[in-house]
Each structure stands twice: as C-alpha cells, then as structure tokens.
Design a binder for these strands. Structure first.
Lengths: 203, 203
DNA sequence: TATAATGTAGTACAAATGTACTATAAAATA
DNA sequence: TATTTTATAGTACATTTGTACTACATTATA
C-alpha cells in the first residue's frame, strides 16, 4: 500500500502519518510540502494506491494541481484534505473526479474508515456539506400565515386577480395583505418582495 | 453487534442481511417490514447498535417514524436506506440526527465501509448529494446581452424608471426590451419573468 | 451589398399595481 | 372583559406596467 501525502504543514503530516499506518499492513508513505515536489516524486515512483492532497497549498493549490496529478498517475484515487468546507469547492472537486474530501477536523478513526471506503471505490464527503445549500433564514421577519401564502403566490408571478381567485377572496383584500407584506419586508413593489423572499429564504 | 433492519421488501432485506454479516463478528440481525413492527421489536429488546431504516416505507415512512425511533432507542445510530437521492430529503434527515444515508444502488463493499464509518461515529452521505444543489440551466433560452442585463435588474425588483436611469436609456426602450424578454420566456409580467429566471438559472 | 438582428426612442391606451382611507367580524391576548 | 391582531372588503386615485404601433441607426450576417 503506497500513499502519497502532500501538505505544507510538516506537523500535520506527522500526525496524519501516525494514523495512516493503521490503514493496512505494509503502508509506505511518501510525503512532501508542495505540488511541484509531488510531481517529481510521482515520476520517480511506480504509482500510488492513494494520494492525499491539501487544497490550501501555496504556489500551486490542490485544486490547480489536480489535473496534473490525474495525468501523472491516473489510477490513484485523489483525496482532498482541507481546513474549510466550502460546499461549492467540494462540489467542483467531486465533479473533477476527486474521490474524497476530508476536513482536517475529522477524528482519526473516522479518517481511517473514510479512506478505507475510498480504497474500496467509494467516495467520502463530509456530512456538513449541505449546510450552505439553503438560503439564510432571517427569523426577525415575521409574516402571518396568510401573508406567507400570498408572498409565495407573488413570488411565482401571480397577479392580484389570480391570487384572489386562488384563495377565494376579494381583489382588494389581496392588496391589503400585499401592502402589509411590503411594509414588513421594507420593499416597494411585488418583484422586490419576491427578490427579498428569495434572499431571506422565505419561499 | 445488534442490527435492526426495517424495509418492506423482503428480498432486499435478504440481500442486505448477507452483506451485514460481514460487518463484524457475532452480528445479530432483527428485521421487519414496517415502523409499527419495528417499534414493538425495539420495546422487546435491549437496544441496538445500528438501525437501518427504509425511507419509502408504507403507512409510516422512515422520515415520519424517525422521532419515535430516536425516543425508543436514543443511543442507536439511525441510517436511512433509499432508492432515490433527493438532496433536500437527505439534508433534512441529517439535520434530524440521522447518521447516514445509503442509496440502495451502492455496492456491497462500500455499504460495509460506510456502516463501519458510522459505527465509529462518522456520518456517511452519498457523493451525488450535491447534484441538485445548483439551478438547472436551459441553454435553449437565448437572451441578448442587453436583455440579460435588464432581466437581472427586473429580478432585483427594479422599476422601469430605475432601470432606465441605471442604463442611461429611455423609459420606453426599457419597455421594448422587457416585452421581448417576456416573449422569449413565455411569461406575462415582470415577477413571472424573475421567477422564471430563478428557475432556469438565468440570474 | 442586401437583409436580419439589435438597440434605441417615441405616442397612445388599457390594464394592473400600489396607496390611503374607512369598516367589520373573528380570534388571540393582556 | 377590553384590546390588539388578523382577515376580510369597499372606494378612490395616482402610478406603473404592458402592449401595439411606428421609426431610425448600428452591427452582424447571408
């Protein structure tokens, strides 16, 4: 089992090396602090079973170097190591064929299991990946149930008459509600209200 | 190692049972086809190490039954099994404390590794979870650069006069562009256009 | 070069929108 | 019980929006 570990923090590498020995028997770890060094190491060796790559590397980041790694050693699954977990970045990485994304905050036992999962052909993504997916929620904005309902219809582009007919109420009543919605959202027209609703995650 | 397997397809249960025996030594599997039965089984036993729960169960779905499972056996990690992978559903499940979400299409070796990961306290989510995150792109809708620009301003709730002043053109010209936008988007008013723009990922 | 597409701007008009009021009944709350 | 909130509905009016035209200059394109 040959593993290549690329990370510019020597201490982190030392810590991770201790963990990696538990992954199987006869683990052979090559390590370096930059993509440039890593390229050289790969050229001089005969393929790795696993490449662990820090995304926040100086000069050439893991993301930038990715293509070159895949070219030099196409069969080696590449796993990103990262301090942050930006879901946009993770998604891009997975689309580019990265087999795992391991936050550096993860516990050692879980790291081992995740890597084992990847060695079996699976993919590992952190569970907090979906956190940035939804719109931010502003709890200070309080709309009544009816107002919510009407705001939803506004956001879909429904006209006052349509809304009135859908809810079975008068055209004028819809306007009263809409005026109230505008006041609480601090907007001046329905499209602005729809935009605000999107922004605040009220739809 | 005590595992509870809840799935209404007996054949799928049989297949999964074969896999589960590989997860460790002395694996004891209890199984049933509904939440109601599962509740009874949990009450009669002394806690499980793992609960595998199909989300698409009849009568009471896995999602609906989740709270009760957590109440009856708080220490047991719950893992969802599912045929589909709707990222909204997955996110909700994770927020409610589910420790894993395993697509039924996953290979047996990867399932084992994923469950082992979960038994160590980790969480497993499928890697295709981020697929639905972005807006769908409809390349067949072609707006001119100016139309795009104006559609963006519309989506932000800007009035015709504002748009005209921002772009330094006449009020009437803005209307001409907007009419053209409506035609290509097949909508009848600006809020509907903003909605469509959101839907199609044009903003 | 002729034609089509794009961006500009105008007039005119009907419909929709938004605001400012008043008013009433039911439900929630102090 | 008194008060507030919520939902309902009306009138009246100014503004905005959207459509249907015409018109012209510039830029691509056949």
């Amino acid at each position: 089992m040959k593993i290549l570990l690329v990370d510019d923090h020597a201490l982190f590498r030392d810590g991770l090396k201790l963990i990696l020995t538990q992954i199987g028997n006869e683990v052979e770890i090559s390590e370096c602090g930059s993509c440039e060094e890593a390229y050289r190491i790969i050229k001089e060796s005969e393929g790795f079973n696993l490449i662990l790559l820090d995304v926040d590397l100086p000069v050439i980041s893991g993301m930038e170097g990715l293509q070159e790694f895949r070219r030099l050693d196409p069969s080696a699954p590449i796993v990103f190591l990262s301090g942050s977990d930006d879901h946009k970045l993770i998604k891009r990485a997975l689309e580019m064929g990265v087999m795992g994304y391991i936050p550096k905050t993860l516990g050692s036992e879980i790291i081992i299991q995740a890597l084992q999962l990847i060695l079996k052909g699976g993919r590992y993504v952190p569970d907090n990946i979906l956190q940035g997916t939804d719109k931010p929620v502003h709890p200070d904005i309080t709309l009544t149930a009816r107002q919510q309902e009407i705001l939803n219809l506004i956001s879909q582009g429904k006209a006052n008459k349509e809304i009135a007919s859908i809810l079975g109420i008068a055209d004028n009543t819809v306007r009263v509600h809409i005026s109230a919605i505008f006041q609480t959202l601090k907007v001046n027209n329905r499209t602005e209200a729809a935009f605000a609703a999107q922004q605040e995650g009220l739809v």
